[in-house]
Amino acid sequence: MTQTMTAYVLLAALLFVLGLYGVLTRREPIVVLLCVEVMLQAVALNVLAFAKYGGFEDVTGHVFVLFILAVSAAEVAVGVAVFLALVRQRGVDDVVKLDTLHAERQEE
């Protein structure tokens, strides 16, 4: 029982770190958004593992996972909308090019 849980938790940790690595290194906005999703789903997996094998007598964990899924879906929907608007307006498909905000005259 505990061994199964540990395996799941380790898998979740791996997913989480993979997602984080992706966010910090990938340049395509869509992939970056997907990597954020991977991090969130890693958390969902973690919670599920605890809920199923942690020996608790209620459904809190399962409900929590549903909430995580729903909210992250909303978040990614907004993310994709913003991404599309950016592509249309400026033709940007690279996160590295999103640096105009610092380029404005900010110093005396």
């Binding site: 970056v32 907004v78 993310g79 913003v82 996160v95």
Partner: peptide
Amino acid sequence: AIGKEAAMKLIVLGGVSSAFLLY
């Protein structure tokens, strides 16, 4: 366009921070 750029940054960094919170 800077508005969308700012929104993109907030989505990604905010999402990562939410992930850490949830973790």
